[in-house]
Design a protein around this nucleic acid. Structure first.
Lengths: 231, 231
DNA sequence: CCTGTTAAGCGTAAAAATAACGCTAAGCTA
DNA sequence: TAGCTTAGCGTTATTTTTACGCTTAACAGG
């Protein structure tokens, strides 16, 4: 069956940049999939695929990420739409890129349709990527770095329960600069968006830290009152 | 002539939110066009139209804005891609929205193709809009408000030569809050991105203000040095 | 020509935030 | 039990922000 239109139409895809944090190795990682179809067969690429009629762009992005990597139910936000002519050898294809943030307990990958395998790669040790995916990834990285300072999206990269040191490590990794632990914790507590748990870390080699959760209700309430999140 | 594809494909449009500032009336305005074709014939809408194969999304947006409003050579930035199912009565259509910022000397409108007429409307006095254009406009407004505080895009809404009072008025209008003129000017000068001209205002009823230009070279240089624009 | 009005622009002081750093307590490891 | 490392409470200096005063400049009106 085929579909005919009076005017030329583009293929429409979604591509996803999936970020995760490795707190042990202290690096930011991204999921890549190995393509098993042309073009760029055998090359690493961002997960993605064509949008279907009847689904929203966000549903399409979430579906493609789940199908190609097994990752689901994560933070997902639209990044930018890439539409340069000739960006895809197959013809006119426009891609709506998204980025996803994945907590450590959601890191498990299952490569399924359209991909031989899916793997985590440190963002500073990437192979050559298919299409314009290196460019898309750079845009996503810039977006993450920027938005981390004015929206509480970093919490999506941490476990539900985390320590202040882990939060600081996240910021140091993504922003690429050392932060003072005493000033960082004072700053974080001044934002008043954390809920202290009656728990401390286990299995650590030195003094165990207190654990916290991000209080989304409190954050929304403070936002309505005009207060801003700024780190 | 028709085009056939193995799979269903969406129509792809660009829509533009064109912002301009009325310094006399002290309001932010947006350009709307009156549609002269179905659907929504006779209703006001954002300028826009279908993307053509072979042109980039940005070229398409700039072309549609020029064709429908006469506005050209302005600041243009991608906003968000709207792709909910059934957002367009004609069928599957996805829209890549842009926002444009127009200096006062570029405000002149000429309605040409696909639009009966184009007019400026204050953003707080809008008619009912076609499609999901009211939603698109709200997103653009939020984007402008946010980005104005961390990037020097506001200068695109001012004349090439402007006074500090005019810059402050811009911020007060868009952010919707009064600012202290003494602190505002101290803050602006501390950013060190303005070039003072050897000119003062003319045709004003009281003490004429000094005129300035935004120094884009200086700003880029400071950005490379890690300094940030923040108002 | 003088007075009144309004805006531009230079300024001070207090409060708040940030940066830099010290030090003790806690707890694991050998 | 001692040593080492980290968490976490703290102080101080510096910078930024906020609040506001006041003088100068210049036009309008009588």
């Amino acid at each position: 069956m085929s579909f005919s239109y009076e005017f030329e139409r583009p293929g429409l895809t979604v591509d996803g940049v999936i970020f995760g944090l490795d707190l042990d190795e202290e690096n930011l990682q991204v999921v890549l999939v190995e393509r098993d179809v042309e073009p760029f067969e055998g090359m690493w690429a961002l997960p993605g695929g064509f949008v279907r009629n009847g689904e929203s762009l966000e549903d399409a992005a979430m579906r493609e990420l789940r199908e190609e990597t097994g990752i689901k139910d994560v933070f997902l936000e639209q990044l930018y739409t890439f539409g340069k002519p000739n960006r895809d050898p197959r013809g006119w294809v426009v891609s709506v890129a998204y980025y996803a943030l994945v907590a450590p307990d959601q890191h498990h990958l299952l490569a399924t349709t359209d991909a031989r395998r899916a793997e985590w790669f440190p963002v500073n040790k990437l192979p050559k990527l298919a299409f314009d995916h290196a460019e898309i990834l750079q845009v996503a990285l810039q977006r993450l770095r920027g938005k981390l300072t004015y929206a509480p999206i970093g919490f999506e990269l941490l476990p539900d329960k985390f320590s202040i040191r882990q939060l600081q490590t996240l910021y140091e990794i993504v922003l690429g600069q050392k932060l003072d632990n005493r000033n960082f914790r004072k700053k974080i507590f001044s934002l008043d968006v954390l809920k202290e748990l009656n728990e401390i870390q286990t299995g650590v080699a030195h003094r165990a830290a207190r654990l916290y959760k991000f209080d989304e209700r409190k954050y929304k309430q403070l936002t309505r009152q005009g207060l801003t999140f700024e780190i």
